[in-house]
């Protein structure tokens, strides 16, 4: 029981990732595939941010800081959560929005050409 509760963030991310993965490979509607891709991406973001947490830690901003130098030894590392996953995911979120935009643009073009966004219909019209 301790094993399951101590790692619950991993179970949540695996469940979300598999929901998105199933939507990507099993659904035949192209818009639903993109929704699945977004769920998959959110799962990865959740995974990265959750491995950066520390119990009792606060947000990664130096407390009581003006624009003056602080001795590096006086900062308690365990007091602040890990900033690196936040940095990586910050750029990943915005790039994900751009990727969604380009994918929706391609779907609009497909809809104009074939008048449908269902994969089966498109394959039938192609053959």
């Amino acid at each position: 029981m301790e094993f399951f509760l101590g790692k619950f963030n991993y179970w949540v991310y695996i469940a979300m990732m598999m929901i998105g993965f199933y939507a990507m490979i099993a659904k035949h509607n192209l818009v639903k595939k993109i929704i699945g891709m977004n769920i998959f991406q959110t799962a990865i973001i959740l995974f990265y941010v959750s491995i950066g947490t520390k119990k009792g830690g606060t947000i990664p901003i130096l407390e009581g800081a003006g624009h003056h130098a602080v001795a590096p030894e006086s900062i308690n590392v365990a007091h602040y959560i890990n900033p690196l996953p936040h940095v990586l995911m910050l750029t990943a979120i915005v790039v994900g929005v751009s990727v969604t935009g380009v994918a929706l643009a391609l779907i609009i073009l497909i809809y104009k050409r074939y008048n449908t966004v269902e994969e089966d219909e498109i394959l039938r019209q192609l053959s």
Binding site: V94, V97, S98, G101, L104, A105, I108, Y111
Partner: peptide, 17 residues
């Protein structure tokens, strides 16, 4: 850049779709 690209993508998608 982010503001311009967000608004530009929205305009394109709305007008084309």
């Amino acid at each position: 850049t982010v503001m311009g690209v967000m608004v530009s993508i929205y305009y394109d998608l709305i007008v084309a779709g």
